[in-house]
Amino acid sequence: MLKTAIPQDPNAFFADLRPVRDFALLADPNRFHPVPDDWVIGTADIVDSTGEIARGRYKTVNMVGAAVISAMVNAMGGRAFPYVFGGDGASFAVAGSDEACARTVLAALRRWAEEEFSISLRAALVPVSAIRAAGRDLRVARYAASDGVDYAMFAGRGLAWAEAQMKNGEFSVEQAQPGAIPVLTGLSCRWSNVRSRNGQILSVVVQPTERATERDFADLARRIVGMTGALLRDGHPLPATGPDVRWPPPGLDLDARVSRAGRSFRLQKFVLLWQNLLIWMLFRTNIRLGGFRPDHYARTAVENADYRKFDDGLKMTLDCDAETRNRLEALLEEARRQGKIRFGLFAQDEAMMTCFVPSAMRDDHVHFVDGAAGGYAAAAGRIK
């Protein structure tokens, strides 16, 4: 008698990967695993993010970029999938069976960004098979930032190829019909910016060139991580006890626009104002409310922050002193002269955090860290 084969969960690939706890180990290409051929890459970024930054809208740019992840997490119903935040956009990978869901989400995000913020968001869905047909690869690893959260890291140069195709108008996802609104439950930006304690918040973007082998870039990445490891708490830009909570909160208008879901902006702003008053009082007094412990939440937010990542390159948001910056820049410049990398640095006074919080009662809230005056987008604009 023949046995019926049990269908394998197409999402099990990523969910079954064992998270790596030491960030430095991710410099090793052998830590990354090939994404299945029948998966797709979703990618989105803001057109003319440099202009938006010049107009003082970088917090909005960050929020729209993080909305890509928030909307997909909500649409996937809690199933694990790899994603990465890029400052002015984001990318993710899902099984081919979730392609229609991803297309619906990206289409709605494009329409919402235009109607809510007058921001042009482009988006694409690129088959992993097309990436490999172009001579690139797409591999992924999981990095456990804490016991509660892990982040995806990408290698193989396939993600960069997919983003380049998107910018060339290939594999484009069209806008949804007017009035489309993605589900952004849990997305917020209520923390205050954090000033540098060591001199500057340094945004670092390093990309391998075609001349660099994976081993070349791995060796360089290991040296960079080792160098920045000499900074206080590895250069983590957030204080160990968490950023300040203020009232009225910064970014209140932005939070209201993100969370109103078609409701009155003024009414949503009023509701958030009083919700945040309660939050401010809890953090100010450290009073527990049910299962919510303000001090624990703040410390966990810092542990969960994604201030370092591999995404076909290396990105870091560091609280950096002048001496370490000079040593880092000299190392990068040497590799650039050898034709192995392209890099960009951008210094600012503050870091900022954009958050996705499914529940404040659990430890799986995620926090995307960037420089507050241009961050990764500005560093990418200075690549040489």
Rank of each mutant, 00 (worst) to 15 (best):
A5S: 10
P7V: 04
V20K: 14
D22E: 04
D22S: 03
F23T: 00
H33W: 11
V40H: 08
D48R: 06
G51Y: 01
R55S: 15
G56R: 05
V61C: 11
V64W: 03
V73I: 10
N74K: 03
V84M: 11
G87E: 05
A90R: 01
S91M: 07
A95G: 03
C101R: 13
L106P: 01
R111T: 15
A113L: 02
E115V: 03
E115C: 04
E116W: 12
E116D: 13
S120Y: 08
L125E: 08
A133Q: 10
A133T: 06
A134M: 09
A141N: 09
R142P: 01
R142D: 01
R142V: 11
A144C: 04
A145I: 12
V149Q: 05
G156L: 00
G156V: 06
Q165Y: 10
Q165H: 09
F171E: 02
L184I: 02
S192F: 05
S192N: 10
R195P: 10
R197V: 06
N198L: 15
V204W: 06
V205G: 00
I224H: 01
V225L: 02
T228W: 13
L232D: 08
P239L: 15
A240F: 05
V245M: 10
P249S: 15
P250N: 11
G251V: 13
R257L: 11
V258H: 01
R263E: 03
K269P: 05
I279F: 13
I279W: 12
L282W: 04
T285H: 10
L289V: 14
G290A: 07
A305K: 03
D306G: 08
F310P: 01
L314F: 01
R325G: 07
E329C: 11
L332D: 01
F343V: 13
E350M: 06
T354S: 09
F356G: 08
V357W: 09
M361G: 02
V369A: 01
